[in-house]
Structures are given as structure tokens and as C-alpha cells.
Computed example of a mutant assay.
Amino acid sequence: MYSVKEISVSLLLLFTIFLSGCTTKKDVVQRASVSKEEVLQVLQSTNAYFMQKWPDTGKPIFTTRWRPSNIWTRAVYYEGLMALYAIDPDERYYDYAVDWGMKHQWGLRNGTATRNADDQACGQIYLDLYEIDPQPERIAAIKKNIDYVMQSEQVDDWTWIDAIQMAMPVFAKMGVMFKDKSYFDYMYAMYAYTKEKEGGGLYNTQDKLWWRDKDFVPPYKEPNGEDCYWSRGNGWVVAALVRVLSLLPEDEAHRNVYMQDYKDLMAAVLKAQRADGFWNVSLHDASNFGGRETSGTALFVYGMAWGIQQGFLDAEIYRPAVDKAWRAMAREAVHPSGFLGYVQGTGKEPKDGQPVSFSSVPDFEDYGLGCFLLAGAEMYKLIARGK
């Protein structure tokens, strides 16, 4: 038999342990976080590597052939650079972006009659730079192009989910800038077509994830029998939704649809995170070219960090995943030189752009860095705001 005193001491000890467990969860999250100074340092390092490698912003890019440097890959880099500029207002960043626009005469790769979202991606940067210094030539071509698309009343351009990120924020930005909701309405019509009609609908309402294009809609399966959800492809949708929701007025007619899709996608992605913090190139099949991949991981960090800041995502649920992913990228993917490893090259599925390793060089180095800069800028703000 135990005495009353012994029982009381035991109960007190158990209660103390219980309270400790309840009160340390947030503390553990906070202790796991890096400092904003550390985040900024790694962003500056990786960006310096790229700017030094590409001093001429107008130089064409050569892989299997020559391409102008105002294509989507470089546009994504400049999205990241503008995010870095917002937290670290170094005039060199702004000048580098302006020089890029000027070298291309603020134009689109295939002119103002293009319907290709990959051509329109540069418009996101042109619009950002116009807001800083409203010189009409900066947005003349992108406005003419988007107005041309809208006049056609054709809404089936985005036949692959990457296109949502490349073009959708342009419509949102123009709707805000010109106070014209027709841009919002047309943007939604295009988004809804891709989501619900293209290839039977590229969004899986059950898994809350997106097939990259109609080639991957069932009956297509991964080697393990699961649906093929490409990491970076779903990351592009995350980035598009974040950028659009950051711009849209609270009373915009379809904002709630975008918000629900964003939250559902973040929850689905969270379940697929690897134990080491990265995500695989195939979200539901780690056996199909599995391993660390930086670009998709960075886009998911971007989306989660932003959502925590805005109060759309529960910090207790998502912050550990964000911290784990950011630490993994910063410690395991960044070379001393600033080169970014584990970036899958261009493509549309897990087998493309392989092999992916610490030292592998993707066919384009720019978009992976852009994704990383977007993620890091949101990490910086998250830490700075004490979220």
C-alpha cells in the first residue's frame, strides 16, 4: 500500500510532466527555427552565385538549343529576386531586374499575340517593376497580350498545371492595377477549365492534388500503382494560389474557391513530406526516382510559410514541416559556392531531368533558385514576425 503522501507526490509529478508536454510544443517549434539573419545570408549567397555567373541579363540560354532569357525559367528566378529585394532592398537587385526587362525591350518571347503561358511569365516581373517606377513601356506588351487573349474568349490555354503559375498572377495583378474585375473573371474561367475540364479535369477532388497534364490522368499509374502527382507541378499551383490570393480583394467573387483549393493542397502535400524534410519528385511514389528534390520542396515551403503568416494555416501543424524543410535545403542543398543542388531539370514527370543529386547541374539553373528565393523570403518574414 502507498501512503497518501506518496500518492500525492506521484500525482504531482505526473501533472508536472503533463504540463511540460503541453507547454513545450510551441517552444520546440521556436527552438527549431533558424534566425532571419541566417536565412538572409543563404539567400544572398545563392543569389550572388547566379548574378556572378550571368552578368549579362540579355544573354540567351543554351541547352539543347538557344532560347532568349525572357522565358519562363528566368522569369521564375526574377520572381524570387523581387521577393529577396522586398526583404533586402539592395539596389543591385532592382537594377539587375530592370536591365533584364530593358534588354528584352519589355517584350514577350513570341510577341503580343502569344497564348503560351511560358511566354507570359515575364509579365509578372514587368508589372512589379512598373509599380516601383511606372514607366508605360514596362507593361505595354504584357497588357496588349493579355487583352488580346481575353478578346478571344478562349479559355483552354492552360493545358498543363505549370501554366497556372506562369500566367494566372499576371491576370490578378492587372485586375488590381487597372481596377478592372474582368481580368479576375477571365482568370477564373481559365483556372476552372484547367481544373475541371482539361483532360477530364486535372484536379483530383479526392486526393486534393493535381495531375500535371492529361497524359497523367488515370488510367495512368506510377510503378507502385498510385496516381502520378509531380512534386514541382503541384508546387507551381501552390505558388500561383499564393501569389493570386496575395493580390485579390477580399470580396472577389472566386477568392473562396482559391482559398479552399490552397488549403486542401497544403494539407495533401504535408502528408507526403519525407522524413529528412524534402519532398520526392513523385509525391505518392518514393520508388519512382525518389530522393531529395529542391524546387518542389522550396515551393511547398513558400506556400506553407506564407499561409502561417497570414493565419490561414495552423502554425502548430505546419511550422515543424516548414522548419524541417528549410533546414534540409539550407544545409543539404546549398554548396559553399552558392550553387543549389538537388534541383530536377525541366520536364513534366519524375523521370525527366534525372539524375538529381547534390552535384548534378540541371539544364536551367534559374528557376530552382527562384523557387528557393521565394521560400527563403517567406521564411525570413515568418521568423521576423514571430509566427
Results as ranks from 00 to 15, higher is better:
Gly376His: 11
Pro68Ser: 15
Asp157His: 15
Lys179Ile: 07
Gly175Phe: 07
Tyr148Asn: 11
Val217Arg: 10
Leu19Val: 15
Leu81Tyr: 11
Met166Tyr: 06
Cys228Glu: 10
Ala113His: 11
Gln151Cys: 03
Gln52His: 09
Tyr148Ala: 04
Trp158Met: 02
Gly303Leu: 02
Ser287Gln: 00
Ser33Glu: 14
Arg115Met: 05
Gly376Asp: 12
Leu313Met: 01
Ser246His: 10
Leu382Cys: 12
Tyr49Gly: 09
Arg274Lys: 09
Ser33Cys: 05
Leu299Pro: 02
Thr346Met: 05
Val281Leu: 01
Leu247Trp: 10
Ala333Trp: 06
Gly199Asp: 11
Leu19Gly: 04
His335Lys: 05
Tyr93Pro: 01
Gly277Leu: 04
Ala113Tyr: 08
Gln273Thr: 11
Val238Met: 06
Lys181Tyr: 00
Phe312His: 00
Glu6Arg: 12
Gln120Asn: 08
Leu299Thr: 13
Arg212Ala: 03
Arg274Ile: 12
Asp185Leu: 07
Gly175Ser: 04
Trp106His: 04
Arg115Pro: 03
Val237Asn: 13
Ser282Thr: 08
Asp162Tyr: 06
Thr114Ile: 11
Ile164Leu: 12
Leu202Ser: 10
Val170Ser: 00
Met379Tyr: 10
Val34Trp: 12
Trp211His: 02
Gln260Gly: 00
Pro350Glu: 09
Ser357His: 12
Phe50Trp: 15
Cys371Ser: 15
Asp118Ser: 08
Met102Tyr: 13
Gly235Phe: 01
Arg385Tyr: 12
Gly291Asp: 08
Leu247Ser: 14
Asp185Tyr: 11
Gln52Asp: 09
Tyr262Lys: 07
Arg115His: 07
Val39Trp: 00
Glu226Lys: 13
Ala325Ile: 05
Asn234Met: 04
Val76Trp: 04
Tyr220Phe: 14
Gly338Asp: 01
Gly347Ser: 06
Glu252Asn: 08
Ile139Tyr: 02
His284Tyr: 14
Phe278Ala: 08
Pro249Arg: 05
Leu127Arg: 13
Met168Gln: 15
Pro55Thr: 15
Thr63Glu: 06
Gly123Asp: 02
Leu373Gly: 07
Gly201Asn: 00
Glu153Pro: 00
Val361Ala: 06
Ala330Phe: 02
Ile71Gln: 15
Lys195Trp: 08
Leu12His: 13
Tyr186Val: 14
Phe171Cys: 02
Val343Asp: 00
Phe62Ser: 10
Val42Ile: 15
Phe339Leu: 05
Ala117Thr: 10
Tyr183Ile: 01
Gly341Glu: 00
Ala32Val: 08
Tyr130Ser: 07
Met266Asn: 12
Glu365His: 12
Ser3Ile: 03
Asn224Ala: 07
Gly175Cys: 03
Leu299Gln: 12
Lys197Ile: 14
Arg327His: 11
Asp352Glu: 06
Gln354Cys: 04
Gly107Ala: 09
Lys197Gln: 10
Tyr148Arg: 11
Pro320Thr: 01
Leu265Gly: 11
Gly347Pro: 08
Ile383His: 01
Gln309Pro: 07
Lys143Tyr: 06
Thr16Met: 06
Asp323His: 05
Trp210Leu: 01
Arg274Ser: 12
Met304Val: 09
Gln309Cys: 12
Asn204Glu: 00
Lys351Leu: 05
Tyr367Thr: 09
Leu270His: 09
Glu226Pro: 14
Ala48Cys: 08
Thr112Met: 04
Gly370Asp: 03
Ala239Lys: 02
Lys5Asp: 09
Ile164Val: 11
Leu14Asn: 06
Gly307Cys: 01
Ile139Glu: 03
Ile17Phe: 11
Phe178Arg: 09
Phe216Pro: 10
Asp118Glu: 13
Gln30Asn: 06
Pro350Arg: 10
